[in-house]
Amino acid sequence: MKNSQLYKGSLNTIIMKLLEENGKMYGYEITQKVKLITQGELNITEGALYPALHKLEAEGLLDVEIEKVDNRMRKYYKLTETGHKETVNRLSELEDFIRNMQSLVNPKPSLEF
């Protein structure tokens, strides 16, 4: 992942947001979707994606489904009810973070001295 330290904390939120938009997704699909949206800028590594998915599942935020596709089984993830609620919280947290970072990195000129 590009500059992983900065993105690391947001990986769970990215996954949850994608699942909220797309319903159910499988691991490979998530990596490709992120690549597509960010035009190849952000590349989620496999070694980070699956642990994150399994953790969210263990926390009860994601549910799993299995489907037979071609000659193999595919594991789909989707948000649970708690997952949907938590996504809203985490997204607003992330937006706050982005806003605060923006004002720290590009402070607006203040009238006071």
């Binding site: 642990p51 399994h54 953790k55």
Partner: peptide
Amino acid sequence: KKFGVFGFVDVVQKRQAALGKKYNR
């Protein structure tokens, strides 16, 4: 190679931790 130098080891370990947590719950 994309899984890194430790291959699947990390994924397996984290999976164990996640399921251990589920069991405790």
